[in-house]
Amino acid sequence: MIEQDWIWGLVGGLMIGSAAALYLLVNGRIMGASGIIGGLVDRSGWEGGTERAAFLAGLVLVPMLVVPLYETVETHITSNLAVVIVAGLLVGVGTRLANGCTSGHGVCGISRLSLRGIVATVFYLLGGALVMALARHVLGVI
């Protein structure tokens, strides 16, 4: 099972990177999910907002159309809504303070050897591993 996981991870990763390459070379934009969403949410990116909206439409609609065809896609989102709300707030605040998330800093930043992208990735991995250890193995809430 794990052996298949890494192959699909690699294939999916290549697709993600190709999407970022397309958005960069054709539209001249950096594919950062939190930036694209955040610019619409706080209106800072309403100029050129239709391009952002079109990107997000593809991001939401393609999985909507594809997922019903396969029974293997699973999300496993926790049913503990308190955890979900806290997590969502932290992700929203954190990505906007840092000006980027896994796609912008991780994929687009590391690939251009951006010091900001590398530092951001180190800290969200550290923060994530630390909170995972605390929440799962010490507190037992997730």
């Binding site: 992700v91 954190g94 969200y124 909170v131």
Partner: peptide, 16 residues
């Protein structure tokens, strides 16, 4: 920001 984001990412397993 990145540390806070990582914390939320771990709690729910979701990024943006």
């Amino acid at each position: 920001g990145s540390t806070v984001f990582g914390a939320g990412w771990a709690l729910a397993g979701l990024c943006p």
